[in-house]
Design a binder for these strands. Structure first.
Length: 496
RNA sequence: GGCUCGUUCGUCUAAUGGUUAGGACACCAGAUUUUCAAUCUGGUAACAGGGGUUCAAUUCCCCUACGAGCUACCA
């Protein structure tokens, strides 16, 4: 049985890169009918942030990444907080001390600093010099008894070469001589990531460790730790990093990195999941499908399709995914609840209601029609809804320089004539027949009657009715505005 | 500095020991005989460089360059 895990540390927010790591672990587990569990890595007292765990769990829930074991849901390997598992670590590390694969270190941070500086000056790799391995058992006992602060370090088998067989990167070779004796137990009695992670992954029967590339270089330490314990290590898969536009590791400095930032900006979970899934993974063999729901991702996922190189987080593509999903969700819902104008308006309103002028909600009919005419724009950019709809609800001022456009070959005289003729024509349409087709027919009649070009009719009417350089098409605008308002505005236009 | 990983259009990526190196986003142009958008059609644009191996290399090997990650009593 395949078991994967996502082990976040509660430092405040969920990084989009972490979400992707969690997603890949989730997908791999689900695809293989295995288990996915969450473990909270809260061993660093200094970095703990209040409420971070709740935030994290709710983000996972929001994304739809359900887990089989972990905080809140529990499970056979509880507790799922490392801060509550310290006894396990202490007990296990004793075995290492006994078999000589770990040792006490009493060095002060001053001595370590000094040592490192010297090494750097001599251009050597900064590594612990094993100063404390010279103490006898008796000396160690005495130091501990007299409460000299200590850490426990891993004794790296320096004579060994480790060949890691990474599921994504293939064979990677490490020389024990350049790997530092890692601190396993900190002086505050908490384990470091390296120790706790290995013990927990073993204890929780994790079969596949899927994590970011930043862990690749410390993997030999972990594997040698498994060896020291006499345990079989899991399989490792190091996934590529998410990058800033300048190809450095995606960081706060250069934009938003927290999932909640994107949620706040209005991106849907479908879009975010879809987008990050495809950053560094491809379903394979010339497949050109790009829109994937979570279940579809589960179906399509495999570790073989994960790349080695990092991927730039390109917000423009995210925007596109978001738009695609917004449209898709609207159409799907309409199919269920019926494709009526009211239903469409309701769904569009859900997208943009908070950005709307409250007054506009009063005229439900006008609003429904108006929303329909700017549907593409709203689904792309709901925050701008006010700009798009403004002219429907507020009578625009008449802008002569906009209406009388040289390019459109419209002058004042033509504008007057057209407004009068259009008003007269539209008036003859009965209210129940006031459809886009009828409106179009009428305006085309005006074209022939006045012997002008299409643009010379359509432009002044549209520009006059909206007061805007850009807007939906004339027929839509007239339809949405309704007969009464249209005629009113056209009357005024005659005075231009 | 050391160790490790990586490198196909601007971006995400596909494919291949012999191809006009494909798609998507973005961009540009045309059409939609009214604007913006949407849509449709078309277009610009990539195998980091140098050596090998080979009849043939973007593909396999080596080197170089460039980029990135790690190098904490952080994860």
């Amino acid at each position: 049985m395949i078991v994967t895990r996502f082990p976040p540390s509660p430092t405040g927010f969920v990084h989009v890169g972490s979400l992707r790591t969690a997603l890949y672990s989730y997908l791999f587990a689900r695809k293989n009918k295995g288990k996915f569990l969450i473990r909270i890595e809260d061993t660093d007292q200094k970095r703990y942030v209040e409420g971070a765990v709740e935030n994290l769990l709710s983000t996972l829930k929001w994304a739809g990444l359900e887990y089989d074991e972990g905080p809140e849901v529990g499970g056979p390997h509880a507790p799922y907080y490392q801060s509550q598992r310290t006894e396990l670590y202490k007990k296990n590390v004793q075995d290492l001390l006994k078999n000589g694969t770990a040792y006490y270190c009493f060095c002060t941070s001053e001595r370590l600093d000094e040592m490192r500086q010297g090494q750097e000056r001599r251009k050597e790799a900064p590594m612990y010099d094993r100063h404390c391995t010279k103490f006898s058992e008796k000396e160690i006992e005495e130091k501990i008894k007299s409460e000299v602060p200590y850490v426990i370090r891993q004794k790296i088998p320096q004579e060994k070469i480790l060949i890691l067989n990474d599921l994504i990167r293939g064979k990677v070779r490490f020389d024990g001589r350049v790997i530092d004796d890692q601190v396993l137990m900190k002086s505050d009695g908490f384990p470091t990531y390296h120790l706790a992670n290995v013990i927990d992954d073993h204890d929780m029967e994790i079969t596949h460790v899927i994590r970011g590339e930043e862990w690749l270089s410390s993997t030999p330490k972990h594997i040698w730790l498994y060896e020291a314990f006499g345990w079989t290590p899991p399989q490792f898969a190091h996934i590529p990093l998410l990058l800033n536009a300048d190809r450095s590791k995606l960081s706060k400095r250069q934009g938003d990195v927290a999932v909640e930032d994107y949620i706040k900006k209005g991106y849907s979970k479908e879009a975010i999941i879809n987008f990050i899934a495809l950053l560094g993974w491809h379903p394979g063999k010339g497949i050109e499908k790009e829109i994937y729901s979570l279940p579809e991702l589960v179906e399509a996922f495999s570790l073989e399709g994960v790349h080695k190189a990092g991927a730039i987080f390109d917000i423009q593509k995210l925007d596109w995914f978001n738009w695609q999903w917004t449209r898709r969700k609207i159409e799907e819902k309409l199919e269920k609840i019926g494709n009526t104008l009211e239903n469409r308006a309701k769904l569009l309103l859900e997208l943009c209601e908070e950005y709307l002028e409250k007054d506009w909600l009063k005229d439900k009919n006008l609003l429904a029609r108006a929303l329909k005419t700017v549907e593409e724009k709203i689904t792309q950019n709901p925050k701008e809804v006010r700009v798009y709809l403004q002219f429907y609800f507020q009578e625009p001022e008449i802008k002569k320089e906009l209406i009388c456009s040289e390019k459109m070959k419209v002058d004042t005289e033509i504008a007057k004539k057209v407004s009068a003729a259009a008003g007269k024509k539209l008036e003859t349409i009965s209210p129940e027949n006031f459809t886009e087709e009828e409106i179009k027919k009428s305006l085309i009649e005006v074209v022939t009657e006045l012997g002008l070009k299409n643009g010379q009719i359509f432009w002044p009417v549209r520009a006059g009715l909206t007061g805007e350089q850009f807007s939906p098409g004339v027929f839509e605008v007239i339809w949405a505005l309704g007969k009464e308002k249209t005629l009113e505005r056209l009357k005024k236009l005659e005075q231009i």
